[in-house]
Design a protein around this nucleic acid. Structure first.
Length: 200
DNA sequence: CTTTGGATCGTCT
DNA sequence: GACGATCCAAAGG
């Protein structure tokens, strides 16, 4: 537990992340992502299952890139895509199950000046963390942080629970950029929040 | 406001 | 050698 935590709340317990991605993902809504002065409330997530989920990076087994997914819950899994973007996931499930929750959007609550510096393209506050790659830019998350621990209190980024519960009835839909339309509605969001990414 | 095309490279086949 | 768990600027209504 970092004494310098600038937000009232406690670290998320690793045990709370040990369930399936479909359970953990909506549970993570309204939790806080904290890096120094930068604070965001998670408002949109997607679940990625292990070897049984064709859309998951772990579908074809362990590789160099997805190795972190196979680690214990609470790790930060960061991957590079489209030749220029980073995306951040919370590893969940038991060690070896390779499940993860993609952090798609957050409501910026603190450290806005630092976020803006890291995202010159953002014109409004709602452009800072709306989208998985934007969120990573705002928080300065790159592959260098892949494998770091979100719940030990010793990592650069932390998952914090400030007591705000997840929404009783979160928005539910299909995952973005994934071909399996109806099968797995594994995207959840905080209804009405302006920081939720829009879909085309 | 919406739509469209281009950027850009690590990873796995 | 192909393809992304994406974003942005530009152009059009």
């Amino acid at each position: 537990m970092p004494a310098e935590l600038e937000v009232p709340g406690r670290l998320v317990a690793r045990a709370d992340l040990a369930g399936d991605a479909q359970e953990v993902a909506p549970w993570l809504l309204n939790k806080l992502l904290v890096r120094g002065s930068r604070v965001g409330r998670i408002v949109e997530v997607e679940a990625y299952g292990g070897p049984l989920d064709p859309a998951s990076h772990a579908y074809r087994g362990r590789t160099r890139r997805n190795a972190t997914m196979f680690g214990p819950p609470g790790l930060l899994y960061v991957y590079f895509t489209y030749g220029m973007h980073w995306c951040a996931n919370v590893v969940c499930g038991r060690e070896g199950e390779a499940r993860a929750v993609l952090l798609r959007a957050a409501a910026p609550l603190g450290g806005l000046a630092v976020m803006r510096r890291a995202r010159r393209a953002a014109r409004r506050d709602t452009d800072l963390c709306r989208g998985p790659a934007r969120l990573c830019q705002a928080f300065g998350i790159t592959g260098r942080l892949d494998g770091s621990d979100l719940v030990s209190g010793r990592g650069p980024v932390a998952l914090v629970d400030d007591g705000t519960p997840p929404p009783d009835e979160p928005g539910v839909g299909t995952r973005v950029g994934v071909a399996d339309a109806k099968e797995r509605p594994w995207r959840w969001w905080v209804p009405g929040d302006p920081n939720v990414s829009r879909i085309r």
